[in-house]
Design a protein around this nucleic acid. Structure first.
Lengths: 342, 342
DNA sequence: CTGAAAGCGCTTACAG
DNA sequence: CTGAAAGCGCTTACAG
C-alpha cells in the first residue's frame, strides 16, 4: 500500500505541487476556479491525505501539545485532561497524554521526549523535581503552563484551587453543623506538594478563625497506604474528633474504609467532608459532602492560555497564579448533638 | 532561541552528520572510540536533542499510536488508557488520546487526523458508525485494534469482557443470596453497542438457567438521563423486584440515586449488583457488589498486540475476539428473606 | 495566476 | 572507519 503524496495529486491534476500546496492551505487569492476544481477532483480520486509530519518539519510547529499529569487515575486529572482535549480540538490541536506517576525521573524523560517530538507547548502537573528543566524551558521562552502545583521560584503560570479557602469552607461547613472537634487527614507532606500544604494551612487558619481548638492528635499526614494506622491512633484518643476533613480523594477513601471497618457510622457518629473530585460521592450513603475543584473550567482555562502563548510567542504575558473556587456538593449531614455531652 | 541541529553537532565534533546519525542510532560497529567521545562531548556541550519529526519523516514511522475512546470520563476507559500508556512507555512509544464522545462524526475526524499525523497504529473503542473507514484501514493493512465493542463484519481484533458471563455471574450471585425477582437496567440499546446487548442477553439466559421468571417490567433500557422514569415504573409495579443489576457505571449511579430519593434501602430492601468499574463502590454503604472488568490487563494486552502488529506488519496474525473474565468486588449483602412472603 | 528551487532535520545505502 | 549525496513530503519566497 503505497501512500499517495502531493506529487501524485499534482501529476493527476496537471499542476505543480506548489499549487496543490496553495490549494490545501486555502491560499486561493489568485487561483483559477478551474485549477481549484481539478485539484479537488484529483484529491478525491486518489484519496490523498496530507502528511502532517512533513508539514510540521517544514513549518517548525506540530499543532500538538503535551500534557503530563501526576496520575491519570485521579478523577481530577481525568476531568482536566478531558477539558484540555476539548479546547484543543476546537483549535485543531492534538494532545499527547503522559503519566509521570509523581516521579521526577519519569517526568524528565517525558519532557525530553515531548521536546524531541517538537510539541508546541506543555501543560504539566509538576512533580517539582526538575527545577533545572523548568528553568531552561522558561529561559528558552518555551510555552508551558502548570496545573495544581506551584513551584517556588519558577516563573510559569499555575492553575489551581484556592486550597486555603477550600479548607476554610470545609471547616465552616462542619462548624455550622455543630462540630468543634475537627480533624484532617492528608497524604504525606514530605514532598511539599502545594495543595496538601495549603489545605492543611488553611485548616489551621480556619480553626483559629472559628475559635476552635487545634488538636495535634487530630491531624494525620502520611502515605495514603499507612493512613489507616494514623486513623486508628486518632480514634483511640480519649476524646476523638466528631468530624474529619479528607484532603483529597484517596484519603477520603481511606477514611470511609476505616469507618466502615471500625463500625463508625457516617454521618451520625462522624461527619466527613472531602476536598477533591469524587464522582458518585453524593449519591452514596454515607452522604459525604465534597468540595470539588472546577476541573473542567481549570482545564479549559489552562489550555486556552497555553494556546494563546503558542500563537503569540512574541507577546509577553507575565505568568500568574490563577486561583479557582471550590464548589460544595453536599450530601445530607445531621446537626451534631454530641458536643452537648462535653 | 535557535534550535541546535545535527550539523551543529557535526561541525563541533569535526565529523560529518552521517557519523553523528550513526552515533545516535548506536551503530557503533566500526566507529572509533575517539570519534564517539568527540560526538558525545559535542552533544553535551550544545545541549543537542534530535528532532523526532525529521526522523519520523525519513523513517516513515512515528513511534506514536492513537487511542480513541468513547468517553474518557468512564473509569474503565481511564484505566485502559493508563495501561496502554504504561505498555507504550516500556516500548518507547507515545500515545495521543482522543475522545470521540460516542459520536461517529467526531470519531471520523479523529481517525483522519491521526492518519494524517502518521501514527503507527490505533486502539479504538469504536462507535460503529464508520464502517467504510474501518474497512479501508483493514484493507490497507493498517494496524488497528478495537476495545469493548465488536463491529460485525469488520475483521479487527477486539478486546472485551465476557459480558454474557458477567451477567450470568451477577444473576448467580443474586440467586445465591435468595433473590428470584431480579431486574436489570441498561443504557439505550438502540445503537447496538456490544456490551449492552450481550449483558442483557446474558441476563435473560441466566434467568432461564436458574429457572427464574423473566418479567418484562423488570427490564429497562433507555438513555441514562431518563432511567429514573423507568425505575419509577418498575417500582410502581404491584410486585417490584428485590434485586437489580446495573449494566454499567452510569446506570448504577442512577439506581443508587433513585433508591436514595425513593427511600429504598440498599441492600436490605433492594440488592444491587453492578457490572463495570466503579472506584469506591465497595467501601461505601450501601455495599454494592460489582463485577469489574480487568481494565489494566485488557489495556496491556491490546497495546501489546498492536505494537506487535506494528513491528511485524509483514506477519499475518488472524484477528480474534479476546475475551476477559470479570472479577467480583463484593460488598456485604444479606440473604433475602422477602421471598418467603410470596 | 502558476511553477522551479531551496530547505526543514534527519537516515541510509553506497563509495572509498 | 567515515563522508557525500539523495531523499522523506511538505511549504514558501521568488520569478515570470
Amino acid at each position: 500500500m503505497k501512500r499517495v503524496t502531493m506529487v501524485d495529486v499534482a501529476k493527476s491534476a496537471g499542476v505543480s505541487k506548489s499549487t496543490v500546496s496553495q490549494y490545501l492551505n486555502k491560499r486561493f487569492d489568485y487561483m483559477g476556479e478551474e485549477t481549484k476544481l481539478r485539484i479537488e477532483q484529483a484529491i478525491e480520486k486518489l484519496g490523498y491525505q496530507p502528511n502532517i509530519v512533513a508539514r510540521s518539519l517544514k513549518q517548525k510547529r506540530t499543532s500538538t501539545i503535551g500534557v503530563i499529569v501526576a496520575n491519570i487515575l485521579h478523577s481530577f486529572s481525568t476531568q482536566v485532561i478531558r477539558a484540555i482535549e476539548d479546547t484543543c480540538r476546537d483549535n485543531d490541536f492534538h494532545v499527547i497524554v503522559c503519566n509521570a506517576d509523581d516521579d521526577p525521573v519519569t517526568e524528565e524523560k517525558y519532557i525530553q521526549m515531548l521536546l524531541a517530538k517538537q510539541v508546541d507547548g506543555m501543560i504539566i502537573f509538576p512533580t517539582g523535581g526538575n527545577l533545572n528543566l523548568y528553568h531552561s524551558m522558561v529561559q528558552r521562552n518555551y510555552s508551558v503552563v502548570f496545573v495544581d502545583r506551584i513551584i517556588e521560584g519558577v516563573n510559569i503560570d499555575v492553575f489551581l484551587l484556592d486550597n486555603e479557602n477550600a479548607s476554610y469552607l470545609a471547616v465552616k461547613h462542619l462548624a455550622e453543623h455543630g462540630h468543634s472537634r475537627i480533624g484532617i487527614v492528608t497524604p504525606s507532606l514530605e514532598r511539599k506538594i502545594t495543595p496538601r500544604i495549603e489545605r492543611i494551612n488553611g485548616f489551621k487558619l480556619a480553626l483559629n478563625k472559628f475559635g476552635l481548638p487545634l488538636e495535634t492528635g487530630y491531624i494525620k499526614s502520611m502515605d495514603v497506604d499507612k493512613l489507616h494506622v494514623g486513623l486508628k491512633e486518632m480514634f483511640s484518643l480519649p476524646v476523638p474528633p466528631t468530624a474529619l476533613i479528607a484532603s483529597n480523594d484517596l484519603s477520603l477513601y481511606e477514611v470511609v474504609k476505616f469507618a466502615k471497618e471500625s463500625g463508625i457510622q457516617i454521618p451520625s457518629q462522624l461527619a466527613v467532608v472531602g476536598i477533591d473530585n469524587v464522582p458518585f460521592a453524593t449519591v452514596f450513603e454515607p452522604s459525604l459532602s465534597v468540595f470539588a475543584q472546577p476541573a473542567f473550567e481549570m482545564g479549559n482555562k489552562a489550555a486556552e492560555l497555553l494556546l494563546k502563548r503558542i500563537e503569540h510567542s512574541d507577546l509577553v504575558i507575565e505568568p500568574q497564579i490563577h486561583r479557582f473556587q471550590p464548589t460544595l456538593l453536599a450530601g445530607k449531614m445531621p446537626k451534631n448533638d454530641n458536643m452537648l455531652f462535653f
